[in-house]
C-alpha cells in the first residue's frame, strides 16, 4: 500500500484551451455564473438564453462545440428535448452533452442516463470541483454529481 500526500489542485493545472462550450441557461443569474465559470477556466463559450435555436447556434459555432451544458428546465422546452435534437443531428450527435440543473438529482439522474446525457452536474456548480469534473467528462469518465 502506498501513501499519497494529497494536495489541492488549482485551475492552472487544468488546461482547457482547446475546449469550446455551448451553455443553455435561461436564468439571468445562472447565465452569468456559468459564463464567468467557463471564462475563469479559459474555455471559449457561447451561452444560449432559451431553448430556442440551440441547434442553429451550435452549427454556426466555428470551431464546433466540444461540449454542451444543458439546463433541464427551460421556458418553452426541456433539456431532454434539446438533447434529442442534438442526437438526431448528423453533425452534432457526437458532442458531449451535460445536464446542469437545480432539479432533484434523485429523480433526474436516472432520467438523464436513460435519455443519453454524458453526465450530470447539480447546481450550484462548485468552483473548486468544476475543473476536475470537466476534465473527467472530457475523458469520457462518468460524472453524475450534485453539490
Amino acid at each position: 500500500m502506498t501513501t499519497v500526500k494529497y494536495a489541492v489542485s488549482t485551475p492552472s493545472e487544468h488546461s482547457f484551451h482547446n475546449v469550446y462550450a455551448l451553455a443553455v441557461e435561461d436564468d439571468a443569474g445562472g447565465m452569468a455564473i456559468i459564463g464567468v465559470m467557463l471564462r475563469y477556466l479559459g474555455i471559449k463559450a457561447y451561452i444560449n438564453t432559451s431553448g430556442q435555436g440551440v441547434i442553429e447556434l451550435a452549427r454556426a459555432m466555428n470551431p464546433r462545440p466540444t461540449l454542451i451544458l444543458l439546463d433541464l428546465n427551460l421556458p418553452t422546452t426541456t433539456g431532454y428535448e434539446i438533447l434529442k435534437q442534438i442526437r438526431e443531428d448528423e453533425e452534432l450527435k457526437n458532442v458531449i452533452v451535460i445536464a446542469v440543473t437545480a432539479q432533484d438529482a434523485d429523480t433526474e439522474i436516472p432520467k438523464c442516463k436513460e435519455a443519453g446525457f454524458d453526465g450530470f452536474i447539480g447546481k450550484p456548480i462548485s468552483r473548486s470541483r468544476f475543473p476536475r469534473q470537466l476534465k473527467r467528462i472530457l475523458n469520457r469518465e462518468p460524472v453524475w454529481e450534485t453539490y
Binding site: 445562472g30 455564473i33 465559470m37 437545480a102 432539479q103 447546481k123 450550484p124 456548480i125
Partner: peptide, 13 residues
C-alpha cells in the same frame, strides 16, 4: 429547485 437556483447565484457570485 426554487431554493437551489438563487443559492447557486449567491454562492457562486
Amino acid at each position: 429547485h426554487e431554493l437551489r437556483t438563487p443559492l447557486n447565484l449567491v454562492i457562486n457570485n
